[in-house]
Design a protein around this nucleic acid. Structure first.
Length: 480
DNA sequence: ATGTAC
């Protein structure tokens, strides 16, 4: 009997429990043949198998079609542990806590925006701080940090950044309960104190897009999307604050692994029992970082709106800009799921995976009950991004789907491949205006460094994890 | 992803 990966059907692959001795459950990977070939080129599958070692894990260690190698668990991994006897693992959440995506709609069409596109992109770039170490216009003292960390995006709204109506259009209302600002180190607070309303670097971006194709007219209508419409997508997370929270926690986790006698194949998966003081500490800080990220996207959205108003010289009513939705794709949440006929409280770790709850789920806002949770998938800056809605993922993947295109080239390989080329010119030839803080960051992020997002989304659509609603084409991009 | 190396 082969210990290798086995194809279950067109879009699912099984990593049997005997793939690696010590796995508590099998691994299940969602991919087609072509994506699977890319997945097998790095240590992703090994990491999926390693995730299956986590104490208390139920059902399987899951991987989405956009997985690639990450810290401990691959980016694109989903692991759920029973909170009565299971663990929490910061490596299964990721360094960028509550990295996520917000989509804004406007009443403008691409024809209306095109003549001012360049001006718009330059204005966005000058108003929105980008890049590593970038600092924003909001400066908060350590004490002032408490409110945003505790209250989530409601804090930003109260400060005048955005509308109260935005909050219903954010996953978890833009706030995780039980955040503990005191669990966030001084160093993390320090790093975050000037980073609200900043984009960051790497694959983070703010993009002006046009709705290129509608696949599900009913869902699109409920979401306020129409063909030719201009949208704005913001992809960023908790910046230095979340990164520091993760770094701080790993030290404690290493200690916890020894203290509680947890056996793991990779120390990067270091974890602690859910009901341990170490977990309480990490979860308090993780939730605070998640709330910070929602404030970050809330502020960025507000400034993007101001730039639109200024550049087009129109009234807020004519612009008609509002929040479609905001998702977290690096987070751990307690959710109830049915496993083998039992309702269990699970710690669902989604690391580079998006929640995709089906229609009628009580956690969805009233106005989206009929269509399911909106899923926002950022692609690369040359091809497309997607809007989907939740369908049948509950029974399969704890209500989870993919989160993006996923890299195929390392940053280093991408820089090498871009040598002698002018990526911004190549994109401009396709009608896409890009403004980035450096040549190198553009090279790292060039379209061919990524898998084809359409292929990724097609897999989750056909596997029944979520349903395609609309394709968005980039028009203007600002990047770190 | 990240004050991209304390």
């Amino acid at each position: 009997m082969s210990k290798g990966v086995q194809q279950l059907d067109d879009y699912r692959w099984l990593l049997p429990q005997d793939y690696k001795p010590g796995m508590r459950v099998p691994g299940i990977i969602y991919a087609d043949d072509i994506l699977m070939q890319a997945i097998m080129k790095d240590l992703s599958l090994e990491q999926v198998a390693n995730g299956a070692f986590l104490p208390g894990i139920v059902k399987a260690s899951f991987a989405m079609p956009d997985i690639h190698q990450g810290y401990g668990l691959p980016v694109g991994g989903v692991v759920a542990t029973d909170i009565t006897d299971g663990v929490v693992s910061p490596g299964a959440v990721g360094y960028d806590i509550n990295c996520g995506v917000r989509l804004l709609r406007t009443e403008l069409t691409k024809e209306e925006v095109r003549p001012k596109l360049k001006e718009l992109v330059l204005a966005l770039f000058s108003e929105i701080p980008t890049g590593v170490g970038s600092r924003g216009r909001i400066r908060l003292s350590r004490q002032e940090m408490e409110a945003p960390l505790l209250k989530g995006a409601a804090w930003a709204v109260k400060q005048g950044y955005g509308e109260p109506a935005d909050l219903a259009c954010i996953e978890s209302g833009g706030c995780l309960a039980d955040a503990d600002p005191d669990a966030v180190s001084h160093k993390a607070l320090e790093r975050g104190s000037s980073q609200l309303g900043t984009l960051g670097s790497g694959n983070h971006f703010l993009e002006v897009q046009a709705v290129a194709e509608i696949y599900d007219p009913h869902a699109a209508e409920v979401l306020g999307l129409f063909e030719g419409q201009v949208t704005v997508m913001i992809h960023t997370g908790s910046r230095g604050l979340g990164h520091q929270v993760c770094t701080d926690s790993l030290v404690e986790m290493e200690r916890a692994v020894r203290k509680y006698g947890i056996e793991l194949p990779d120390r990067q998966l270091a974890c602690t029992p859910w009901k341990s003081p170490e977990a309480t500490q990490y979860l308090g800080a993780m939730r605070a970082a998640a709330n910070f990220a929602w404030n970050n996207r809330q502020c960025l959205a507000h400034w993007a709106k101001e730039v639109f108003l200024k550049v087009f010289g129109i009234s807020p009513r004519t612009l008609g800009l509002s929040t479609v939705y905001d998702v977290a794709h690096n987070i751990v949440k307690v959710e109830e799921h049915e496993v083998e006929g039992r309702r269990l409280k699970l710690a669902v770790h989604r690391k580079g995976a998006t929640r995709a709850f089906p229609p009628g789920h009580p956690e969805l806002p009233a106005h989206y009950q009929a269509i399911g949770q909106p899923v926002l998938i950022p692609g690369d800056m040359g091809r497309a991004s997607f809007v989907l809605v939740g369908t049948g993922a509950m029974e399969q993947t704890f209500g989870s789907t993919c989160h993006g295109a996923g890299r195929v080239m390392s940053r280093h390989a991408a820089i090498k491949a871009a040598k002698g080329r002018a990526i911004h010119r190549e994109l401009e030839d396709q009608g896409i205006i890009v403004k980035a803080s450096g040549q190198e960051s553009l090279a790292e992020e060039m379209p061919e460094a990524y898998k084809d997002v359409t292929q990724v989304v097609t897999v989750v659509h056909r596997a029944g994890l979520s349903k395609m609603v609309a394709r968005l084409r980039p028009m203007g991009v600002i990047k770190g």
